[in-house]
Design a protein around this nucleic acid. Structure first.
Lengths: 356, 356
DNA sequence: TGGCTTATGTAGATCGGTCTACGTTTTTAC
DNA sequence: GTAAAAACGTAGACCGATCTACATAAGCCA
């Protein structure tokens, strides 16, 4: 005895109200050409019958009232905040939000996005997708698209990104003001080619520019690693292996920052007394007092709701691309401090620890 | 110039291959009555035209090949692991997984689930939904459903849960073996009524049973609070305010555990020297060395893939409900230690600290 | 070779809505 | 008071697939 309480359809409502199916459809859509009397009667029937239109059938011709959010990695708590913003705005405009994840590379990403298109979702938010810009253009030509977390502008899609250039500058300024000069930066490197619009590229660019601005051209030190826990941990060993190790690091993302802190913790290198660490994203764990990671906050909720708003605009007809940048803010916590006095950073000592 | 590269439909393929639409449909579904020659020709045409069937249209009569995962709170990193498991299994069986979140109460949860049904998703996985069991039965009668994280059995849905009774026992056993006797427990209390199948109820029950088992009937201390960071922090003040404060706490969930640790950190109460803390879920942050929270691991990936498997079975016709329990394991880390010597737990002292 | 069964392909209804075209009333305007 | 315009409601094609019936062709057996 399953699935048998047959759904009420638009025909049932029409019959019950004694009008045509087209009339019910009009009421449903709030379309022109409905008298108040008829509207009331139809709505009453809907109520009595407990009618809910099939979003699937509606989608066949009209809108599906569904937005798709594509994510590479749900376990990154920062994207959760973005999604919160997306949902809030979309919900208030009558759209349902469904999230699709794909973390096994470009092919899987493509498949997921196609799955969304095949389900005729009215619009897509792509959170930090990989792949070349042209791929995104292609998607944008098929369906309304907003790319979140990559810099613009695009031809056929909108972008919402944090001003990563400014974010990196905030970090470097902060560290320099604490007296640091040897500041390293962790740049994400994956299997895919880096596009100029990707955050890792812009953050690295901002880091270099800021270093130059402070006259620290000679101290520029970009370490390529993966932006995850392991990548951060690995980078520590690399840094400590330098002839003259840095005194601070801009880890590019909190996840890598956690890895850095973990490794330092294992090595009993005191943070921030011996080494300053700055993350990026203001993920949940960064705020835990035992971690208390200095980081850059991207006001994810606002970015998310802005993306939603742009997407709905686009669905409703806007064609010109919009590219926005949100100002980040620095969250100074307890992993950054004054540069250690020269005596306290014995490179030899640090290297020994690393090998022990 | 948008959205105009008109999609190829089944008719296009049929025409190109010189067969009927029905024939193409048969090939698509792998249905009976297709010669090898025709199959090859149709598939070639699909290839040439770059055909992808509309999942929407397919769903109108047949399956939509879509599974819906309902989640209350995506920011809980444990559900991310569950989703990973669900996706792995579902993907290998040709289903797409879409996630819907609703964290603003029962009404929003209901709306989200209805939205999934309205889109004719083939089956639903509900992760720790709230509301009465009957509500779940109602859903299960409409569409194949697996409930993840609530204990069974259900009449018209399957359940996959961690053995919370055993989990609580593991925790209490561990603490008792360290010499603790005054062990408190944090029980989640929300705005909704607690059902007997909800984890907070079973964990509390397991805690009580385990305490009784160790002859600690008189030390049973269940504190009702919210299972989040703030709830954990608040509970610390409550515990320290007791005439004879406990020496250990089973926080019910890692999120509350983080709150407990945070508050202790603020109060400079050393963990585990003065107080032992155990979480539940083995969330990501629990593994960070600075946190290193002793907790219970629920092997989320396995639970997720098991749920997927059950759901597909149900979609394919099974009617008898299945109710499974997965064994949890204890992860001993650095927030639990031997009970402090009597002198070190001066209740007065702790209370002063709390007020300072 | 006739009679049956099995294999292969097609026509056309169907799913539950939307949307265009058109007929009928009711208003408005002069 | 009548023509033109606006308001209201309906019929029926359509979206892109699935699925049931049925027609035709091929294979099998005696």
């Amino acid at each position: 005895m399953n699935k048998h309480p047959k759904r009420t359809t638009i025909s049932d409502v029409a019959e019950h109200a004694g009008v045509s199916r087209a009339a019910v459809s009009k009421v449903l859509r709030g379309a022109y050409g409905v008298s108040d009397i008829m509207k009331a009667r139809v709505e009453a029937s809907m109520d009595v019958l407990g009618y809910r239109p099939s979003a699937l059938a509606r989608g066949m011709r009209g809108r599906s009232f569904t937005l798709g959010v594509f994510v590479v990695d749900l376990s990154n708590t920062f994207v959760t905040v973005l999604i919160e913003g997306i949902r809030a705005e979309a919900g208030s405009r009558g759209y349902q939000v469904f999230i699709g994840e794909a973390n096994m590379g470009l092919a899987q990403q493509k498949q997921m996005i196609e799955a969304m298109i095949d389900r005729k979702m009215d619009g897509l938010v792509l959170i930090a997708p990989f792949g070349p810009d042209e791929e995104l253009e292609k998607i944008g030509r098929i369906t309304p698209t907003v790319v979140l977390g990559r810099h613009g502008p695009g031809q056929d899609y909108d972008t919402v990104a944090s001003d990563d250039l400014a974010g990196s500058a905030l970090i470097v300024d902060h560290l320099v003001s604490l007296g640091h000069r040897r500041i390293s930066h962790l740049k994400h490197v994956g299997t895919e080619k880096n596009e100029a619009t990707m955050p890792q590229v812009v953050r690295a660019d901002g880091y270099v520019k800021a270093m130059v601005h402070h006259g620290l051209d000679d101290e520029i030190d970009v370490i390529e690693t993966r932006w995850n826990h392991q990548g951060g941990a690995d980078a520590v060993d690399l840094m400590l292996d330098r002839d003259l190790p840095p005194t601070a690091v801009h880890t590019g993302t909190d996840m890598a920052g956690f890895g850095v802190l973990s490794r330092f913790h294992e090595l009993a290198v005191p943070v921030p007394e011996a080494f300053s660490v700055v993350g990026y994203d203001n993920a949940f764990a960064a705020s835990l007092p035992q971690i208390s990671l200095t980081t850059v906050d991207q006001s994810g909720f606002e970015m998310g709701s802005l993306a939603s708003r742009l997407l709905v605009e686009r669905i409703e007809g806007r064609m010109e691309p919009v590219s926005t940048l949100v100002k980040p803010t620095l969250m100074v916590r307890n992993t950054t401090g004054p540069v250690p006095a020269g005596s306290r950073v014995k490179p030899e000592l640090l290297r020994n620890v690393a090998q022990g």
